[in-house]
Structures are given as C-alpha cells and as structure tokens.
Amino acid sequence: MNWTGKDMDTYLQQKEYIDTLVVPLVKVETKMDNMKTSASSTEFVMHLASLIETQFKGRMMFAPPFSYTPATDHQQMAQSTLQEFSAATFKHVFFLTTDHIWTSMELPGQVIWMPSIPLENMDASLRQSILEDQLRQVLPKFTEQWAK
C-alpha cells in the first residue's frame, strides 16, 4: 500500500492484515560534490521501495520518504520525529535507508540498511534483476520479524 487516499481506505478496512509500516529515510545532500551520490541513492531506495511494495502490497504500508540534510541532528530526529512511529498502529515498523548512520541509532523499529547501487546507467532489464537480487536479500529481514 502506498501513502495515497485510496490505499489508505483499504488499510482502514483491512487493519488486521496490513500490520507493517515501511519508512524510507533519504539524505538530501546540499553540497555540489555530493549531490549526485545523494540523488543516485535516493533513486535506488525509492525503486527498491516500490518493488517491495508490489511484492507485499497486502501487508505493508509505505510512508512517504523522510528526507533530511547533512546538518540534521540525527539523534534528535530519531528521538522526536521518528520516535512517533512507535505510537503508530502498525505492529512492525521498518526504516529503509542507504545511510549507515541510522544503523547505530535507537529507532522504534528495524533499520534495513542497503548499500546504494547506482541505477541510472543501467538498462531496464538489468536494473530489474539487480533490484530483485536486493529484494531477495531484504526479504528474510521482513519474514523474520513477521514470524516473531
């Protein structure tokens, strides 16, 4: 499910089945030199998110991506903004990111860190197969939590 009105209607009717929230965390670089990597990894995260979404549409709700700049106080963001997700009605919360700083943070859910892969120069079929490989790697992390 995506964070859209229509999907939200479905969620509100099927709450007992859709018990997982995925929040993409993306870093928006402001320095010219880092912008390209930032854009590229955002692209990767969003592509991966949409692939996971099609795969697990009926169990996951995808929040809009949370973005931050390098000057952001991660500790504070983790403790205030993101902490609020612990009160959400979702049983499982995941944070999907390519920024490894989150792996050391206390977040109200599981952090799924993926190394960013630049997708911009790949043709569609290669991109698809690479994303599917990545998907296969994250799958166990979800199923593990669900099995608990």
């Binding site: 099927q14 099609t54 795969q55 697990f56 009926g58």
Partner: peptide, 8 residues
C-alpha cells in the same frame, strides 16, 4: 496478484 490484498 493475490486476490486477497494484492501481494505477489
């Protein structure tokens, strides 16, 4: 597409 809630 699953007929339940649309997973794959």
């Amino acid at each position: 597409v699953c007929k339940h809630l649309g997973c794959t």
